[in-house]
């Protein structure tokens, strides 16, 4: 068997050159970029399916956000630790296994400690596995970067995803049910004057339209995101 062309990268996990501060400018960018300039939902248009499905109310959106942050941070860290050990040919399978186990852990914990929420999220927790953002970050970032950076990248992207989720859920719950986080915020007096909740907001198409409006607003403010063609 012939050795593959030697790329003499030493298999050391942490290379101690000049030490980069934990929150250097570059590292902060890893956290910050996905919130705006490189938002997974509004800019990369990933993870749309769950953004439609669980944004009827704020509460599940918040729990989904926290779950995705946990799953992404943990799986990014694990894949990053293993990045020099994972056999190239089965790396996608390894990533899938890591994500799937994280998701099952989250599911089990929710079922034990937040049963109602876990019932509400039901299949969507399982569907975190298929959330393109998770696999995308593992493949694109964690496989090639250090542990701390990967952690930040995971948290950042999940937060960027969650931020949009919560923004959409905010409008849908407010206009669709007149509530926020389950509490009524639109006063009864307004209903007596003839105001009605917009039932359409509760249906999936309005999630897409809300998202479209958010994308519009974001690009109006942040002009470098506008595609030139």
């Amino acid at each position: 068997m012939s050795q593959p062309k030697s790329n003499k990268k030493p298999a050391i996990f942490f290379v101690a050159k000049e030490r980069e501060p934990l929150f250097s400018k570059k590292n902060r960018a890893l956290l910050k970029d996905p919130l705006d300039d490189n938002n997974p939902i509004t800019v990369q248009v990933l993870g749309i399916c769950s953004a439609l499905a669980i944004t009827v109310q704020l509460k599940p959106a918040v729990v989904m956000t926290l779950s995705v942050i946990a799953v992404m941070a943990a799986s990014n860290v694990i894949v990053s630790i293993l990045r020099n050990a994972i056999p190239n040919r089965i790396r996608i399978i390894v990533q899938l296994v890591v994500v799937a186990s994280m998701v099952i852990l989250v599911d089990q914990v929710l079922r034990a400690y937040a049963y109602d929420v876990s019932k509400q999220l039901s299949i969507f927790i399982g569907l975190i596995i298929t959330n393109c953002i998770v696999m995308g970050r593992l493949e694109a970032f964690a496989l090639g970067n250090g542990v701390w950076k990967s952690f930040l990248d995971g948290v950042g992207n999940a937060a960027g995803y969650g931020f949009m989720l919560i923004a959409v859920a905010f409008f849908r719950e407010l206009l669709g049910s007149g509530k926020l986080y389950g509490y009524q915020v639109i006063p009864d007096a307004l209903y007596e004057m003839g105001y009605e909740n917009n039932g359409l907001m509760l249906l999936s198409p309005m999630a897409l339209i809300t998202l479209g409006l958010i994308i519009w607003a974001q690009r109006a403010r942040n002009r470098k995101l506008i595609e030139k063609n």
């Binding site: 593959p4 056999p87 040919r89 089965i90 390894v94």
Partner: peptide
């Protein structure tokens, strides 16, 4: 890291670890 032996070994070890963690939880 590209040999068959390593790949199989890695997969087997991964499955064992993951299975025990999940079963324990």
């Amino acid at each position: 890291r590209d040999s068959n032996g390593y790949t199989f070994g890695f997969a087997a070890a991964m499955v064992l670890v993951v299975a025990s963690v999940l079963a324990f939880t």
